[in-house]
Amino acid sequence: MSYILEAKNLNKSYFKKKALNGLNLSIEKGRAVGMLGPNGSGKTTLIKIAAGILRQSSGEILIDNHEPGVYTKSVISYLPDRNYLPKWMKVEDAINYFNDFYGDFDRNRAYELLDFMKLEREMKVTSLSKGMTEKLHLTLVLSRKAKLYILDEPIAGVDPVARDKILDAIINNYNEDSSMLITTHLVRDIERVFDDVVFINNGEVILSGNAEALREEKNKSIDELYKEVFGE
């Protein structure tokens, strides 16, 4: 079994808190995995470590059998929960930027997605609403033919119309050679996209499994299961 991502006993401590507590996670090729948990549960911490912008305190993480570094950054397409585009850029600039730095970037696909998302190339990045910004970020990320797509809260804070477009784009992006790791706390709208789900809290995995199997076994939707696991 080849895993695109393998985290073994991952720990991350800060001065005051332990963000990851012996976390184990394996993602196979071709799977869409939902990482579900409340704010502060460790989802973003794990993702940042996988993306290579955070270092674990201890434990091992491998992406395509490599430690995080220049290679893993070239096979991971990461959508952070931030406005990470420089303010001077227009949409066209962002496309060119990605095209320049990522060999797996498909310019034509990017233009198609821009049309689909109804974004214009001349728009300034600073003039975009939250929904449009999210759609632009997603366009950039999904236009790469990466091995692992990591989407951190792709639909949070986004209006329902934009949210549907985003989900459509994510589903359309699905292919058997890539995997997707999507974090969210808005489970209801997105649970049908997942093959597998992982429930995480306090830096460790509480529950994981195939989404459909869990529905059958627990006789609940994943959203209801989420409420049950994380409810008061």
Partner: peptide, 13 residues
């Protein structure tokens, strides 16, 4: 600031 998320995820040294 946030642009670091862009620069430091580029596949460069």
């Amino acid at each position: 600031e946030d642009t670091g998320y862009l620069t430091f995820t580029l596949p460069i040294t």
